[in-house]
Design a protein around this nucleic acid. Structure first.
Lengths: 396, 396
DNA sequence: ATGACTTTCTCCAGTCACAGGACAAAGGGC
DNA sequence: GCCCTTTGTCCTGTGACTGGAGAAAGTCAT
């Protein structure tokens, strides 16, 4: 079902749509306070938006001592789809025009099965959300993939952990299937946009968002805009050298951060500790095939296992060391830590903070909060919705 | 002498002024091709600029098959002052409105003497340039200082190598003295702007400009604009850790890049090598007080001294290692190496390149030029002129 | 030379965006 | 009921801008 969502005709209309998205329903007068247009001009633009159906006027607000105002809000039937493709699972969510999550599904999945299989699953999940009555159709979809993307075309490039995805026209293919506009970005950038829109990074112009999951990546926001770099690989910090001539890494180099810490590295180190008998706590959590996951380590740490705590601290130190360098270089106003390992919580955060505050320049760390993301797994899907809504709410 | 330079009245005029600055004299028709305005509107704006005296029409260009065009150019009497304050010397230059250097003076100086003494010297140098007939007055001045700056106010903050400068109102004081608009920025950012305007970084949107002088800093350009960070300390990469638990650094930490390489570190290591008899070549260059400078090392290296070459290679390796991390993170389209040690030339560059190409991700380095700055000591002063001209050529 | 064609620049009229004031609608407080 | 406030609409004047007509000043081929 093709859905021909109207698009704003000019910058003013786009501005108004975003104000309604971010600030919720508003009266004309309230909108006028934020937009530096005369009331007459504003009324004209609002009327035009009402004609297109993108916004509706429903009901009157309570009086504030004078004539009651009309509630202007985004069309309640608008729906965005946020899709966050991880290495081992997918998140799909529907939001309304205000980017509130109405329904959210998470399913295990393996990216290595290739784009065709994965998108079959994603489309099934989207259909399920639609079938449950949450949406009649989608007005746009924002997709996050775990690797670099040529952003303008929406095509993954040379993704190390995603063989078979290189050059696959994600944007075009999904736009066809879903019958709505689609934007594709790196999953880390999506998380950054999510935390910026609805999480800890509201009202911060320049910040870093470090996502520690199967790998490690970093979303870079400059002046409120995601910075993607010349070839779309900005923020790829997993293979920054943390230790000269250190451990060998899957990428072929030595001493990469990911060789020391990431969901995968943590699980591997924990398995080794368990097998070598250094932690009874971890050993009890081994599954039939002798494997552990980051979640197991988090549980063991919560239970007070010293080996697990050490592994987390050690990883946090390495990560903090790299982040310290980035903080000196980038001088952000905030550092957000997120991703699958957020469950490691305060132990991880404390280790990272210690390193950063010790190694970065006082001027850069003086007033620098380093915090956990507050949206967890919804950061990515909200970011996806945000990405596509920015596109849909821009002049045609 | 107060000089009341007119300012453009709107964005169109500002745009035209910058086109004339960057592209030199142009006819109305040529301007029209670049500015997306109707010829009539363009004519109006040009006429208004002519009235203000900011631009002049002098002479007719050769015919290109039809009516000859008028040459529209920036007023030939406009003068900008570019000032680049280093740790041990000052550069002062006058440029015309097209930012061509008309006169350039370099003098030794010690920043530690404090802002009052330094600016006395700077003003004397400016007066000298004026006396030599290069300028009747200045229409703006761009100042670079070797430390972080609160950019909007033009005030240095907590400069480690500049005690006594903290909080000194450079912009206000100099604006008073010179009687013209003044802008203040980090010297590294100025160099980046210089290379962007007239050097190797023309037409590159996102790049890094590493300046290796007494210390090490890095100018960051995002989308053609200098990025300064939340507190103005972005690009301060001298104290990024290059070696965990490495050499002690003056900043109190260990293993900082500057502890291994910079003009100062290189001179120190060379002196040590000379004293320990590891290099006869270097020993012959020791001055009366047993000191060497980076220039001596460059000369020794040029003469083929293996110890000097080793020192340079070693420093280049360390620097390259740090830059490799920044390249992975920032994914620039170009890396420029500049500053006092540019004299070390190809040996240094080769070492840096080797490290970066080996350690950064292929996607980020795939088409990444790493080159020496081509402006040398004029990069900073041109950057200063560029900085202030951007300000003067913006709507009042 | 002369006419045909180009290029550059100016002038003019019409259109559109927008601001700002007058005014109507709708309510609160006394 | 009266006066005040807030919200929203209508209308007109102004200034920004476009596009076309045409004048000015050339080149080039014949």
């Amino acid at each position: 079902m093709r859905r021909m969502t109207a698009r704003p005709a000019n910058g003013h209309q786009a501005r108004l749509l975003r104000l309604l998205r971010d600030g919720g329903p508003n009266s004309r007068a309230q909108l006028g306070d934020q937009v530096d247009l005369s009331r007459s001009k504003l009324a004209v633009e609002v009327d035009r938006l009402l004609e297109t159906g993108l916004v509706v006027a429903d009901g009157l607000a309570a009086s504030r001592g004078g004539r009651r105002s009309h509630n202007i809000r985004l069309a309640p039937a608008l729906r965005f789809l946020g899709v966050d493709i991880g290495a081992t699972s997918v998140d799909v969510a529907v939001t309304n025009a205000e980017l509130e999550v109405l329904g959210h599904i998470n399913q295990p999945m393996d990216v290595r099965e290739g784009p065709v299989a994965v998108f079959e699953q994603v489309l099934a999940m989207a259909a399920k959300l639609k079938a449950s009555g949450l949406a009649e159709g989608f007005d746009g979809a924002g997709i996050g993939v775990p690797g670099p993307v040529r952003f303008p075309e929406g095509v993954p490039v040379a993704p190390p952990i995603m063989p078979g995805w290189d050059g696959f026209p994600v944007r075009e293919a999904l736009s066809q299937e879903l019958g709505c506009p689609v934007m594709v970005d790196n999953d880390v950038n999506l998380m950054a946009m999510g935390e910026q829109h609805a999480g800890v990074a509201r009202s911060v112009g320049d910040f870093l968002c470090v996502k520690i999951g199967t790998g490690i990546g970093c979303g870079i926001v400059v002046g409120g805009e995601v910075y993607r770099g010349t070839t779309g690989s900005a923020g790829d910090i997993g293979h920054i050298q943390a230790e000269p001539d250190g451990r060998p890494c899957a990428c072929g180099n030595r001493g990469c951060l990911e060789a020391y810490f990431s969901g995968a590295a943590l699980a591997r180190d924990a398995e080794e500790a368990a097998r070598e008998g250094r932690s009874a706590e971890l050993a009890t959590r081994l599954d039939e095939t002798g494997r552990l996951s980051a979640v197991d380590v988090a549980a063991a740490a919560a239970a007070g296992d010293p080996t697990a705590l050490d592994l987390i601290r050690e990883g946090g130190n390495r990560t903090g060391q790299v982040i310290a360098g980035l903080v000196s270089f980038f001088n952000p106003g905030l550092v957000v830590i997120g991703g699958g390992v957020t469950g490691l919580g305060h132990t991880l955060l404390a280790a990272i903070r210690t390193q950063v505050y010790r190694q970065s320049l006082p001027l850069a760390t003086g007033n620098l909060p380093i915090v956990l993301g507050e949206l967890g797994p919804t950061a990515g899907v909200i970011g996806g919705a945000r990405l596509i809504s920015d596109h849909v709410f821009s002049p045609a």
